[in-house]
Amino acid sequence: LETFPLDVLVNTAAEDLPRGVDPSRKENYLSDEDFKAVFGMTRSAFANLPLWKQQNLKKEKGLF
């Protein structure tokens, strides 16, 4: 999966995202380093959170 810089994904409308980016899964296009910096946890820890908590975190970080 291709990764993009944080500033390309945060608070970006679906139509302005790079081609192929799923707007409902912007976090998947962050590098592992950016993911950890944004969410303060690994991808696996994030995946283990309840869906509502994942969505709330994504909203807080501008990735929803």
Rank of each mutant, 00 (worst) to 15 (best):
L1M: 12
L1W: 15
L1P: 12
L1E: 12
L1D: 09
L1G: 11
L1Q: 13
L1T: 13
E2V: 14
E2S: 12
E2Y: 06
E2H: 13
E2C: 15
E2A: 12
T3I: 12
T3N: 08
T3K: 10
T3L: 08
T3H: 11
T3Y: 14
T3F: 13
F4Q: 04
F4Y: 14
F4S: 03
F4T: 03
F4K: 03
P5K: 02
P5E: 06
P5I: 02
P5W: 02
P5G: 07
P5R: 01
P5Y: 03
L6T: 04
L6E: 02
L6H: 04
L6R: 05
L6P: 07
L6N: 04
D7T: 09
D7Q: 11
D7V: 10
D7P: 06
D7F: 09
D7Y: 07
D7N: 10
V8P: 02
V8R: 12
V8A: 11
V8W: 13
V8I: 12
V8N: 05
V8E: 07
V8T: 08
V8D: 08
L9D: 02
L9P: 02
L9T: 03
L9H: 03
L9I: 05
L9W: 01
V10H: 06
V10M: 14
V10G: 02
V10T: 09
V10D: 03
V10S: 06
V10N: 04
V10A: 09
N11F: 06
N11E: 08
N11T: 08
T12L: 10
T12K: 12
T12M: 11
T12Q: 09
T12H: 09
T12R: 10
T12V: 15
T12N: 08
T12E: 06
T12I: 10
T12C: 11
A13E: 09
A13N: 12
A13S: 14
A14I: 12
A14E: 14
A14S: 11
A14R: 10
A14V: 11
A14P: 14
A14N: 14
A14L: 12
A14H: 12
E15M: 06
E15S: 12
E15L: 06
D16H: 12
D16N: 12
D16I: 06
D16A: 11
D16M: 11
D16F: 10
L17Q: 03
L17H: 03
L17I: 05
L17D: 03
L17A: 04
P18M: 04
P18A: 04
P18F: 01
P18N: 03
P18K: 04
P18G: 05
P18R: 03
P18D: 04
P18C: 06
R19S: 14
R19A: 15
R19Q: 13
R19K: 15
R19E: 15
G20E: 09
G20M: 08
G20Y: 11
G20T: 10
G20F: 09
G20Q: 08
V21E: 02
V21P: 02
V21S: 03
V21R: 02
V21Q: 04
V21M: 07
V21C: 05
V21W: 05
V21N: 02
D22S: 04
D22E: 06
D22G: 02
D22K: 15
D22Q: 04
D22V: 05
P23W: 01
P23I: 08
P23Q: 08
P23N: 05
P23E: 07
S24C: 15
S24Q: 13
S24N: 13
S24T: 15
S24I: 08
S24E: 14
S24V: 09
S24Y: 10
S24L: 15
R25N: 09
R25E: 06
R25F: 12
R25K: 14
R25S: 08
K26P: 06
K26F: 05
K26A: 06
K26E: 02
E27Q: 04
E27R: 01
E27P: 02
E27D: 04
E27K: 02
E27G: 02
N28D: 15
N28T: 11
N28Y: 11
N28P: 03
N28S: 10
N28L: 14
N28V: 12
N28G: 06
Y29H: 12
Y29W: 12
Y29G: 03
Y29F: 08
Y29T: 02
Y29I: 02
Y29C: 06
L30V: 04
L30H: 01
L30T: 01
L30D: 01
L30F: 02
L30C: 03
S31W: 01
S31G: 06
S31N: 09
S31I: 03
S31Y: 02
S31T: 12
S31H: 05
S31K: 06
S31D: 07
D32W: 05
D32F: 05
D32T: 07
D32A: 08
D32R: 04
D32P: 07
E33R: 09
E33M: 10
E33F: 10
E33W: 08
E33H: 09
E33D: 13
D34W: 05
D34H: 05
D34T: 07
D34C: 06
D34G: 04
D34S: 05
D34P: 00
F35S: 00
F35I: 01
F35V: 00
F35N: 00
F35A: 00
F35C: 00
F35R: 00
F35E: 00
K36N: 14
K36A: 15
K36C: 13
K36Y: 15
K36D: 12
K36T: 14
A37V: 12
A37N: 13
A37H: 12
A37G: 09
A37F: 14
A37K: 13
A37E: 13
V38F: 05
V38D: 00
V38W: 03
V38R: 01
V38L: 12
F39V: 01
F39Y: 02
F39I: 04
F39H: 00
F39P: 00
F39N: 00
F39S: 00
F39M: 08
G40E: 12
G40M: 08
G40D: 10
G40I: 02
G40L: 08
G40R: 07
G40P: 00
G40C: 09
G40H: 10
M41Y: 05
M41D: 00
M41T: 03
T42G: 10
T42F: 04
T42I: 07
R43M: 06
R43S: 04
R43T: 04
R43L: 05
S44L: 12
S44A: 14
S44Y: 13
S44K: 13
S44N: 12
S44I: 13
S44T: 13
S44R: 11
A45L: 08
A45D: 15
A45V: 11
A45E: 15
A45Y: 08
A45W: 06
A45K: 09
A45F: 11
F46P: 00
F46A: 00
F46T: 00
F46L: 01
F46W: 08
F46K: 00
F46G: 00
F46I: 00
A47R: 11
A47S: 11
A47N: 12
A47Q: 12
A47V: 11
N48T: 13
N48M: 12
N48Y: 09
N48C: 14
N48D: 14
N48G: 13
L49W: 04
L49T: 02
L49R: 00
L49K: 01
L49Y: 04
P50G: 02
P50D: 08
P50A: 06
L51D: 10
L51E: 10
L51M: 12
L51I: 12
L51W: 10
L51P: 08
W52Q: 13
W52V: 09
W52Y: 11
W52H: 10
W52P: 07
K53D: 12
K53R: 11
K53Y: 13
K53E: 15
K53V: 15
K53I: 14
K53F: 13
K53A: 13
Q54Y: 00
Q54K: 07
Q54H: 00
Q54I: 03
Q54L: 01
Q54M: 04
Q54R: 11
Q55Y: 10
Q55L: 15
Q55W: 09
Q55F: 09
Q55K: 10
Q55C: 13
Q55S: 10
N56C: 15
N56D: 15
N56G: 10
N56S: 14
N56V: 14
N56L: 11
L57W: 03
L57P: 00
L57E: 03
L57Q: 02
K58G: 01
K58V: 05
K58N: 01
K58H: 02
K58F: 05
K58M: 06
K58T: 02
K59F: 10
K59V: 11
K59E: 10
K59T: 09
K59A: 10
K59R: 12
E60P: 01
E60V: 08
E60Q: 11
E60M: 10
E60L: 11
E60F: 06
K61W: 05
K61Q: 08
K61R: 08
K61P: 00
K61G: 04
G62T: 01
G62S: 03
G62L: 05
G62V: 01
L63T: 01
L63W: 07
L63E: 03
L63Y: 07
L63N: 03
L63A: 03
L63K: 02
L63C: 07
L63Q: 02
F64N: 15
F64R: 07
F64D: 15
F64V: 13
F64T: 15
F64S: 15
F64M: 15
